[in-house]
Every structure is written in C-alpha cells, then in structure tokens.
Design a protein around this nucleic acid. Sequence first.
DNA 1: GTGGTCTAGACCACA
DNA 2: GTGGTCTAGACCACG
Lengths: 137, 137, 137, 137
Amino acid sequence: MKTHAPAIFSIAPGSSDPLYKQLMEQIRRMSAAGQLADGDLLPSVREVALALTLNPMTVSKAYNYLEVEGLLRRHRGVGMLVCISTKSHLHVTQDKHSQREELLRPSLERAALEAQQMGMSNSRALALFKQILGENK
Amino acid sequence: MKTHAPAIFSIAPGSSDPLYKQLMEQIRRMSAAGQLADGDLLPSVREVALALTLNPMTVSKAYNYLEVEGLLRRHRGVGMLVCISTKSHLHVTQDKHSQREELLRPSLERAALEAQQMGMSNSRALALFKQILGENK
Amino acid sequence: MKTHAPAIFSIAPGSSDPLYKQLMEQIRRMSAAGQLADGDLLPSVREVALALTLNPMTVSKAYNYLEVEGLLRRHRGVGMLVCISTKSHLHVTQDKHSQREELLRPSLERAALEAQQMGMSNSRALALFKQILGENK
Amino acid sequence: MKTHAPAIFSIAPGSSDPLYKQLMEQIRRMSAAGQLADGDLLPSVREVALALTLNPMTVSKAYNYLEVEGLLRRHRGVGMLVCISTKSHLHVTQDKHSQREELLRPSLERAALEAQQMGMSNSRALALFKQILGENK
DNA sequence: GTGGTCTAGACCACA
DNA sequence: GTGGTCTAGACCACG
C-alpha cells in the first residue's frame, strides 16, 4: 500500500452538477487514466473537505457511492483505498481502452444528439470536436 | 407573421433534466436549426401543455426564461414569437453555422475535458465520436 | 366643431403598460396640454387602429373609459368629441396648472419613493430630474 | 459570508404590481442603497414566505429572476447570496451613486416625458418633484 | 383566444 | 436545513 495519491481533486463552482457527482466522476476518470492505481490511499474526507471548502458530508457521499460501485474499498482505521483489479467496477473485465470509452460515451452521445437536432452535419461536428481537443492540448 | 410552426415539441420522460429546461433547449436548437424562423408564432402554452400532458405553468416557465434570454418575444393577445433578428441572443450577428457551433461547444468541451483527464488520446476520442455520430444516423 | 385634431397618437411597443392605457394617458395629457381642445373631434377608432396597427377593440376600450370618465363625449354619427368645459373630468373646477400637476404627481411620487428607498439624497434626485428634463428639451 | 441581513422585505397589498416584482425591485434597491452588501445571505424562501404570508413559489420566482439577472447567486445548501462585486449587474463597475441613478432614471424619464407632453414647464415640474420629495421626508 | 399571477400542497435533490 | 420542480386549479388582464 502506497501513501495517498498526491493529486487532489477540484470542483467547478459554476457547474450545475452536484458537488458529490463531480467528485465521483473525477475519481472514476483518474482511475481510468491510471493516475489512481489499485491500492492507492485516497485523501481523507476531512482533507478533501478542507482543501475544497466543501461540507465533509459531500465528500463522504462521493466516497460511499464509489464504494458501493466497487471502485473504492473502505479499510478500517486507514481510509479509502482504490480497488481496481479484483472485479472491475465496470461490467467485468475490460481492457483499459474500452473502459475509458464507456466513461466518455455518455458525454459524446449527448453532444451527438444535440448536433443532429440542430441539423449540423456530422463532418462539421467532428471538425469542431477536433478543434476543441486541440485547444486544450 | 406566419401561422404557428407545425413542429410541436417533445419531452423525454426518462431524462433527469427538468421539463421546462428540456423545452428551452429544444426551442433553442430548433431555432438554431432553422426549424423556427424569426417571427414564427410558437404554439400556445395551453396547446403545448395539452399535447405533452404538462402543466401550463411548466410550459410558461420555459417561454418566460427564453423571453428574458431574448429568443422569444411576447406579442400581446397573440402569443410568443420567435425573435432572432433583433440583437441575436448569442452575441450579435452570426451566421447560422457559427451560431450552431456556439450551442454545441459546451457539450464538446465537456467531453474533451473528460477524455483528456482520462488520458485518452485525441484520435481515440475523435474516433469514438465519429462512431457515435454514425450510429444515430 | 372643428375637424379632428391633426395630432395622432403613438404607442411604445416596449412598454409593459397595456396599450389601451397608453392611449388613455396620452389623450389625457394632450387635453391637459391644450393640444386637444373642447369640441375637438378625435380620429375614429378605425383610423387609430390602422395607423398604430392595433386591434380596434383596444382603441375603442380607451375611448370608452374616457367617455365614462367624462373627458370624451360620443356624438352619434360623428365620433368622439373632446369634452372639457362642462364639468371637469378631474374633480370639479381646477385651473389648468393644478390639473397638470395632478396628472404628473403619481409618476413623481413613485420616483420619489424609489429614490428614498435607495437612500439617495433629495438634492441628488432633484439634480438628476433636472438633467433629464434638460435632455429632452 | 455573514449571517443573513436583518432587514426583511415588505409588500404593498394595494399595489397592482405582481408580488414577485415588488420583491425584486425591493431587493435591487436595498442592494443599491447598501442595505444589502456583497455576500450577504438573503432570508430563505420559506422565511420570507412565512413572514409575508406568501406562497414560497412567489418568493422563489423573485429570487430566480434576480439570479438570472446576476444580482443573486445560489450557494448550494446555504441559500441565496447577494452578488454585487463580480461583474455588476449594471454594466461593469460603477460607483454607488451612478448605480442608484441608473435605477432611478427610468422613473424620472417617464415623468419628464409626461410633463413635457402636457406642456408643463420644466421649472414647474421640478418644483412639484421638490415638494413631493419633501412630503415623504 | 392569449399569457400572467398566485395558492396549496406534494415530492425530490443537495449539503 | 436549503432551493427546485411539478401539479391542479382558480382568477385576472389584455386584445
């Protein structure tokens, strides 16, 4: 078991997404990206709450849901550990790539629906996505 | 002033988005798609409420917010008119294509952020988007 | 009896005031200003409705209320006549100046209330009013 | 963040203005007067509704529109905060005095227009305004 | 016919 | 505790 991951989370105050969901998605993505590896110790609820000026209940809620989901494991007296290998939290066994695609798919499906409802051509939508991906590079 | 647009709205019963927001986004997209043109008369609050079995206040709420936004204009004793030309609700004058891109951009930016936070390559993200666009075709 | 007054009315499309009230207030003010004198023939409902693209009912409503009020008199087969002398429509007999002040008072009272609720000094409010009066000169 | 402002709102039962608009204007003026400062916590929807025997939705409507306007900010789980500093809801940065003048200007412009349409001299209009300001003192 | 306002009351999500 | 959403139903003002 390593010490806890150096990376800390962040929240977007402007977003309308609930805070606990922002945390959950962020942890899922960091896990999918390999930034959180199996066995890593997450920062404590208190730490995160202080750092992000959140209510500890909010952090706790995110951790709890992820524990139910199987991505995290509560280790008594220690904290929350990342738990990837033992039974993938997504379906069963997936290679890393398809796991990431599953996580990304909902956002892209929404964007695709919007584009098509606006009558935008697929090629224009793709071009715009390509451009945006480049901007953040 | 033309008679009201033949198109009627629809709501997704499964969506977690509030009904009035679904209506708002739909009207915005239909306007961006040219399905609602400047001066078009929207179906009356009661009509929409009946057709979608919603409460009239829910429809009215959507219309009101869009009026504040500048996309709709109240015509006394007549109904709500689409109001695009005078001072576009998005910046000032834009051609149709860039207007659509502005509407689509937030969703794609979100997706791009997620992809990059997961460490997914841009080409993979693009490929996935292309595939999803094709599915709905 | 003269021919009808040359001046025609106008409405402010942006105002939230009902159209018929805008007409009523305008006629009251033109009368107070002497632009409409006793016996003047008002333009017909149809004329006004055409000129301002209003529903004739709207114009008629204004005329009717003003008839009840005593400012106008319906003359069969002729039209609506201004009717000032016979019994002042405001209280009883007033000189022209106090009549105008009565008409202006409500707007100024509202403005005064707003100024004082905002904690603006009377002298500042007066200075602003003076400035605005000068602008339109 | 301070505790909520001690001042509570009031409505004029006789007014023909909708209740929610009365609330909105009052909050705008209290903000302009400095009685509501940036970061102040507004009384909760339920509090106001109880105190004024209004329906909570009526209060909520006022708060919502003011949020769209940028004067208020929703703080999750806490309530509505006054939000003046970041990008003032009126243009950008204004000193307190010019902000108040902007809020008062529409009422005075209306009064000025009425006075001039009636042919009242500017000095008479000013004198009347001065008198009315004195009455409420 | 149009939209607007308000109420009463229920239920939900979030912190 | 906070605000948000939605419904059902009544009443009003306007054109």
